[in-house]
Design a protein around this nucleic acid. Structure first.
Lengths: 335, 335
DNA sequence: GTGAAAGCGCTAACAG
DNA sequence: CTGTTAGCGCTTTCAC
């Protein structure tokens, strides 16, 4: 039978208030005798406090929502793990929500999370269109946006990576290595990271006196299938291209597969660079040169920022911009 | 300001009981007029019901716990995704817990989940030792164990994969292909899947008239690092070996890397087979022959079984044993 | 059709 | 040092 605080109180011959104080460590003025008696009873009867009941009065659930497009996408597990680790350290739990980049699912999860009275939400948005996301601006708990920021959502916390610089570094490195005809295969331009990475690419080209050509950008999805398809498409016609800068590692993986089928050697015929440094990147043959994103760190810091906001340890949430790092492996070489 | 059911009741000039009924669809005998009035108010004032409060009375949280070793391990995201999908379909949420195969963390998460009154738990255990897991047998909600069963935990639901058969098929195929000196690099023997896969290996050897030799089993961890290290270890001495059957794909990936460094060709010098068919397997060079596990399905079915149990739609939970499938790719060949 | 009232299990003043 | 009391926001009989 399930024990309640009342049962323990009765058995210990004290009031529920006393038990509550002891259990919550607010027991400076409780005698050791009763404290010990209570703990013994709790142990003996295997009493488990009902946090639902206490949440109802404290208005804190110690639960956060984590809204991401898809945990099965290798980009997100590290973020989730980082967030969960920090949350756990601070005594919070995480509710996992997969949206498939679908606005309706996003809104429905936000509703559920609010109903369950989560203390805050970590959110990787599918869309940048503020108007579509006005549901988000009505949320009554703190929200941290991670990776893909929601433009126009001013009041909330934000953790992003410097995608412009990351792409700039990568392309710069390609050019320095002697690659000259760089094609960019990337995700949808509705996504901020895709736009930022494109911007970094342009900047690097310009600074090196190369002209940017719209036609060298293949925008599709952040998936390996798209990388594969794009490469097949690109090489259907005779083209002059010696390097592929991919919007993320999944695209690069698909591209690599297609290049192999086309009997093109990486890095000798074509230099290949990805973005993200997912675990897989180092397992490819050749190992993939890529731009590493601190995913675990992003998750960890987003949870930290969020909990700080919840507990008022941080008044104003200024955006955190994390640095990327170019990881040079064997899919590129000096020529 | 946050609306409560009282506010809506007052505004609609009805009792909270009526509002509650309408909101929960128990409104057969409520007039359309009041029903509509209530819905209008809910809309207008953006009323969000407090599920914490209702959980307190209904004793249902519509929340499940998902306890896994590590979401960053590529084996688990698919399971998590499957479980979350079904949960979402049925109106449940999932709390994510990473244990790192650590018993203490497992117990602490179980405690947290019970305190938060989850309706059930999906659990991938780190250990098979029943005695150490007696915390689990005291849990007051339904538990489904996935992938790694907890021996001796009779009353609960169970979803596993036929690891014996999976391994048997793989090794049988290796032998049929002409490989004869098969070494097994696998995870810890404290894990049931590792033991079962070893059993399948033995069975296949025996049936083919080959003798099994303890010394050909390298038991370590289910990680790529171990696969790498094991191969280096194996080839330190002159050895006769023409195939590597790995306990999982991560191990196979590490092994592949080491083999490459040793200038051994896969599949010509060495045939390589993994287990799991994680997404990465098809991206390797050569693409990895492996035993596919229905991970998404496992997650999905475990959540389904669990929710059925919670809602009494399933009285007794008989174990579900899912089939594996040998996926032949280019890391093995007929010789 | 609808409402009054009791209570879910806990915390938080405040009083003593 | 400890207990009394009054809720938290909701659901659920049962009565009208």
């Amino acid at each position: 039978m399930k024990m309640t605080i009342k049962d323990i109180a009765r058995l210990a011959d004290v009031s529920t208030a006393t038990v509550s104080k002891v259990l919550n460590g607010k027991d400076e003025k409780i005698s050791d005798r009763t404290r010990n008696r209570i703990f013994a009873l709790v142990e003996e009867y295997n009493y488990v406090p009902n946090r639902i009941a206490s949440s109802l009065v404290t208005k804190k659930t110690k639960t956060l929502g984590l809204i991401i497009p898809n945990i099965a996408n290798p980009f997100f597990p590290e973020i989730a793990r980082g967030a969960e680790d920090l949350a756990n350290e601070r005594g919070y739990n995480l509710i996992l929500c997969n949206t498939d980049d679908n606005l309706e699912k996003e809104e429905s999860y936000i509703d559920m999370l609010e109903e369950k009275m989560v203390d805050g939400i970590i959110f990787t948005a599918s869309s940048q269109r503020k108007d579509k996301l006005d549901r988000l601006s009505k949320v009554s708990v703190p929200v941290i946006t991670v990776d893909r920021e929601v433009v126009g959502l001013a009041t909330q916390g934000k953790i992003v990576v410097d995608n412009v610089k990351g792409a700039y570094d990568a392309v710069n490195y390609l050019i320095e290595s002697g690659y000259e005809q760089i094609v960019h295969v990337t995700g949808p331009m509705s996504s901020k990271p895709a736009r930022d990475r494109l911007e970094g690419l342009k900047k690097a080209l310009e600074e090196n006196g190369l002209i940017f050509n719209e036609a060298t950008v293949y925008s599709g999805e952040f998936k390996s299938e798209w990388g594969y398809e794009a490469v097949k498409q690109i090489f259907k016609n005779k083209v002059e291209i010696d390097a592929l800068f991919c919007g993320n590692d999944l695209i690069a993986m698909g591209a690599l597969k297609a290049l192999r089928e086309l009997n093109l050697d990486v890095p000798n015929d074509i230099g290949l660079v990805g973005f993200d440094d997912i675990y897989m990147a180092q397992m490819l043959e050749p190992e993939l040169t890529t731009v590493s994103q601190p995913n675990y760190e992003m998750g960890y810091q987003s949870a930290e920022m969020l909990i700080d906001m919840i507990e008022n340890k941080r008044k104003e949430a200024k955006p955190i911009i994390l640095d990327t790092k170019l990881i040079i492996r064997r899919s590129t070489k000096k020529r």
